[in-house]
């Protein structure tokens, strides 16, 4: 009988074997070449659960080298338990440096947020994606959504968007508003708030999106036009935090977390933990702000 009694006590650099890393790297390069298109890839199992950032991890581990400086955030925070866990895993496997400082990082892995601070050409933002198929809500079959992308047939999502407008009185229905990448592919920006969507367009950094469970990688290259889906007369709007200031810093113009006090009263704190640190210490880091159309 086949029986191997030797247990492994060490791992390949960055955990994933070189053969599979190369496959992920080839697919990532194709994703860069076809902005917004979802490239299928092998998506090997990780010691981290599916749906907890495996796609992001595949990308990060295929990118990372000993000279990299890694930042991991979850919901905008370096302190989130899952961020801590992923950060520790990458560090143990790749012996790279770690940081909370957005500007110091070469690779940032994030869930649900794009950092407030403007990212540069030397940075890669890896976004974790639960559902890469933005059309899944309007068509449940993969074979069909793939044909819809192939034919740039986006009628169904436009209809859904319009229906959402009729129902809710505005266009954005929550996180992960559909985007049009480079005028060709409708894609998901991952479940980031509307506030972050304008940051994706014509950015200096590279955005990589990894969906581990669904085995897809997509990309927004630098200097690529990205438009939230909107109608000529009904425009996309980001969250407005009108008359709201951060309780901890007294500052505004950043995505705010609403926090409920013991007495159920609400107050607000800047969501991006490193940005909050920086505005409290000053000076305020460079930010790209979006003005809602009237």
């Amino acid at each position: 009988m086949i029986e191997n009694l030797k247990f492994q006590d060490s791992f390949n650099y960055a955990y994933i074997d070189e053969f599979t890393k190369k496959e992920i790297r080839r697919k990532t390069l194709k994703a860069v070449c076809i902005p917004g298109y979802q490239v299928p890839y092998s998506s090997p199992e990780m010691p981290i659960s599916r749906g907890w950032g495996t796609g992001g991890l595949h990308l990060t581990l295929s990118l990372v080298g000993p000279d990299d400086v890694l930042k991991v955030i979850d919901q905008g925070s370096d302190a989130s338990v899952n961020a801590c866990n992923l950060r520790l895993f990458v560090k143990e496997m790749a012996q790279c440096a770690l940081t909370f400082d957005t500007a110091a990082a070469t690779i940032i892995q994030s869930r649900h947020r794009v950092p407030e601070e403007i990212l540069t050409e030397n940075q890669i933002l890896v976004l974790q994606v639960p559902q890469p198929e933005i059309l899944r809500g309007v068509e449940r079959h993969e074979a069909k959504t793939r044909m819809m992308h192939a034919e740039a047939d986006y009628a169904k999502i436009w209809v859904t968007l319009y229906e959402a407008y009729v129902r809710n009185g505005h266009l954005r229905s929550g996180a992960g508003h559909p985007i049009m990448v480079n005028g060709r592919y409708v894609a998901t920006p991952s479940p980031i708030p509307g506030w972050d969507v304008p940051n994706l367009s014509m950015a200096r950094c590279l955005y990589l999106f990894g969906a581990g469970r669904e085995k897809r990688i997509h990309c927004i290259p630098p200097f690529t036009p990205v438009k939230p889906l909107e109608f000529e007369d009904i425009r996309f709007k980001v969250e407005e935090f009108v008359g709201i200031k951060c309780q901890m810093s007294g500052q505004d113009k950043a995505f705010m977390d609403q926090i409920y006090a013991e007495d159920f009263s609400r107050y607000f704190v800047i969501n991006d933990s490193n940005f909050l640190d920086k505005v409290r210490q000053g000076p305020r880091p460079p930010q790209k702000l979006f003005t809602n159309p009237e």
Binding site: E18, K21, L29, V64, G65, L206, P221
Partner: peptide, 19 residues
């Protein structure tokens, strides 16, 4: 070195492809 040279070269190729 297939691990570390491969990684560095990939990053260069990724940057080049993105720009």
């Amino acid at each position: 070195n297939q691990v570390f040279d491969g990684q560095e070269h990939y990053r260069t190729l990724l940057q080049a492809t993105a720009r």
